[in-house]
Amino acid sequence: MRSIGLYLHIPFCRRKCLYCDFCSFPGRTGDYQRYLEALKQELRLRWNPQWQVATIYIGGGTPTVLPPSALAELLREIKTVARVQPQAEVTVEANPGTIDGPGLAQLRAAGVNRLSVGAQSGDDRFLKILGRIHTTADVESTVALARRAGFTNINLDLIYGLPGETLDDWQQTLRWAIALAPDHLSCYGLQVEPGTPLQSMVREGRVRLPTDDEVSAMFMANTRILPAAGYKQYEISNFARRPRAGEAASGDYRCRHNLIYWRYQDYLGLGLAAVSTVAGHRWVNLDNLEAYLSAVAAGTEPTGMVEPLTPRQAMAEMLILGFRLTTGPDPEAFASRWGVSLAQVLGERVQPLLDGGFLREAAGTYRLTPRGMLVSNQVLTKLLAPLL
């Protein structure tokens, strides 16, 4: 059996944020049911009985703009069609202000065991700048309601480097988030994507972004403040809490679904614009809603693009993703897949990066130091130059 991660994209939201370039649409409630039926049909079209599902991740968009009963029905269909491991991680993304206590209880009863809350900031000023529909009080309420509903694995998504944000502002957001006692924190630097309203605001001088040095200081604050509060960094942007007193020592709050991506393992993506990589083959679904719905209704797989990967490209991707992890690329998995060791592939390019304090060697592999993480793109470009 081939173990895979399963991702389902919900492209609907209540209002599109000013920084968002994801495939998502505000409103369009009349398309909800058609789209859910198409997701179920695509699963039936693509499912291979030789697969088993290790993780399920329902993302968006905002999945929780859908009725909780619809998400529960979607999960029931997955478990009917696919072979889902008994201890599978099942995550749903939730935006504060789009789900209440009974809805959270319904998701938990349906088998959702991990909730990822789109908090983004602990300061209402910055939430307004981003175009978010919620307040910090809404985040606090959602977390409290989720705990009451029985969720024991809650992630908060946060963004730093926001327009007008200072290091002190970001440190206050971190302290606010820690006080909510989530089990996992994802802290991403803001990306100003082309074609977004935020890009226009920056270009026209209506908002000012922090400098590179200020953003670097915010990143370093993550690596200092969160571990001191009991959160272990396991990936450049992700931190999982350590088990508390009385909990099983084996408790692991790392996102198992995202680990599938970073370890370059197989995943199947369903829905609009979803990406899949299985057995070395990659494809991307159609990103036009009507075209996607029509293709699935006609009984055809809604593939928009097939991306052929050469062995060299695949090897580079595996290393790029592996270096995001604080443990570095897995040397045994790499050698098993490619028949060559990390040291042979990376060669003499490693030593200057070790000497410069950007990499360190440990457990038969190489890991980015905090200094290396700050400039990871440049480090990996130098390290993997022959493969790129």
Rank of each mutant, 00 (worst) to 15 (best):
G164C: 06
C13Q: 04
T135P: 13
I133R: 10
S336E: 08
L342N: 10
L342A: 07
T64E: 01
Q50H: 12
T277D: 11
T196Y: 15
R46S: 11
S121K: 14
V90G: 10
R241T: 04
T64G: 05
A105T: 09
P26G: 00
Y160S: 14
R46E: 15
E235Q: 05
Y160N: 13
F12Q: 10
P49D: 08
F239G: 10
L198I: 13
Q41I: 06
L226I: 11
G230L: 15
V340W: 02
T166E: 03
R242L: 13
L387N: 13
N377E: 02
V340Q: 11
T98I: 12
I56S: 11
M220V: 15
D100R: 07
V275T: 12
H9Q: 11
P194D: 06
A179R: 05
I4F: 06
G30F: 11
L359M: 08
T310G: 06
D266I: 06
T303K: 10
W283K: 07
Q120M: 01
E193H: 15
S276G: 09
D31Y: 14
Q85A: 15
L368K: 02
R206M: 00
R337W: 01
L380S: 10
E37K: 14
M373H: 09
N285K: 02
I10Y: 03
L104W: 04
P86I: 12
Q120N: 01
P210T: 06
L190I: 03
G356H: 00
R108Y: 07
L43D: 01
Q171S: 09
V296M: 02
G111R: 12
Y253K: 04
P182W: 03
G299W: 02
Q191F: 05
